[in-house]
Design a protein around this nucleic acid. Structure first.
Lengths: 231, 231
DNA sequence: TCAAAAGTGTTCTTATTACACCCATGG
DNA sequence: CCATGGGTGTAATAAGAACACTTTTGA
């Protein structure tokens, strides 16, 4: 094999850390590998990138095949390319994370995802390949990003309560002493990016909370004027 | 060609945005391409990744071949992998940026770098491939990172004045109205990470400024205790 | 003595933190 | 009427922004 040829004895893949939130813990969607290598181990959903496919498109495809969802928040984190990261050859992978509304995910439509399951990020053990390292890297990015951009809403249903929103931030940021309720509300409402829907929760056995929605149009307008979200 | 084979008709490279600072503008090191495609165009230094080489190692190699420098600050930014980004085939590239002391760079030792030259980041025009986009992305990362970690010092000589340090921050962050001298000094000195060397500039035709050094050991000790740089 | 850059404090404004009680609802 | 979580304001502290003059040196 010539040296030039050997450069092409390699492939690249995408791996996707799919975050969801169910009101309690922050979760990620893992699949159990059905084939070697790492058969039976939990792994991030991923696939080789098709020859005529952009990286972002490949990440979107992996997500859609697994969840049936399109147009969700997706962000590249970085490449992982240690020589020995894949036992069968030289495969570098581009890590992505995405944020989905966990209620939108119902069954696993794609065959390759027969054993997909939500796992609490805090209880994830060893994963196949270097996927634990990828997860850690994506989680770190999410922690930073969720304070710099209003992406947390991607994990919540369109209508949510302020307590749900606070619990989301707490589950991502995991501050030692929790977040102060009054300070959190003051800060998030002062952005004026939440619309009070004049509706309340139903079916709860306590004082029902008011429902809000995130005003994306308003946010984008403010961004165009130089606004920068910070929470 | 089978489908499996076609997955391997691809390669990956690294491209390196090498930043330097000469007291005036922030600069990057570009090379003029001697061969097609984009012959004659300015481009980021980069190379294909060897089959048995980690991505970081490849980026270090590119840097060392061009500058002769080792052990410099180097950080991966992200992958660029649009299908059509390389006219000769499917090549995804992993972008890195590095910070070097511009005075350490003298001549171009490597043959492939016959026409390497420093360019002010603000005056960079079109570049080969998608290198302008890569530059923008790395510059954006640098702007964020330089405020979250004491990496600016990597661009300065070991002994520097507070004015030089301020000019460095101004050239990277480019704030509309400059940085207030007194506030900057108050803030940077309050970190206690700068050692006053009890020396002054020589050969200047005005009041000589005091020289300082960055105390890396102290910084790493503080980080271990939970400290987080923020300027 | 002039030019050029170094050096130095205070006030004002804004953001962040800490903290405890009453309210509305369903069971 | 009880249990449960929802909802609210103020005071203290810390951080950031604005601002102008004196000092030291070499030419």
């Amino acid at each position: 094999m010539s040296e030039v040829e050997s450069f092409f004895k390699s492939a690249f893949s995408v791996d996707n850390v799919i975050f969801g939130f169910d009101g309690g813990d922050l979760k990620i969607l893992l699949i159990q590998r059905g084939a070697a290598p790492y058969k039976g181990k939990w792994a991030l959903p991923g696939d080789l990138v098709y020859p005529n496919e952009d990286l972002d498109t490949a990440a979107e495809r992996v997500l859609e095949q697994l969840t049936g969802l399109r147009d969700v928040y997706l962000e590249q984190v970085r490449a992982f390319g240690a020589v020995d990261r894949h036992p069968l050859g030289r495969v570098i992978t581009i890590a992505y994370f995405s944020l989905i509304k966990i209620s939108d995910y119902t069954v696993t439509p794609a065959s390759f995802a027969q054993s997909a399951m939500w796992h609490s990020v805090n209880k994830v053990g060893d994963l196949a390949f270097d996927h634990k390292e990828i997860l850690d890297s994506c989680l770190k990015r999410l922690k930073r990003k969720v304070r710099m951009a209003p992406i947390g809403f991607e994990l919540l249903p369109p209508k949510f309560t302020l307590t749900e929103l606070q619990q989301l931030y707490e589950s991502i940021l995991a501050p030692p002493k929790g977040i102060d309720k009054r300070n959190f509300r003051k800060k998030i409402l002062s952005t004026n990016l939440l619309n009070d829907l004049n509706q309340v929760q139903e079916g709860v056995s306590h004082r029902p909370a008011k429902l809000y929605e995130f005003d994306k149009d308003k946010y984008e307008q403010l961004v165009a004027e130089g606004y920068s979200f910070d929470i």
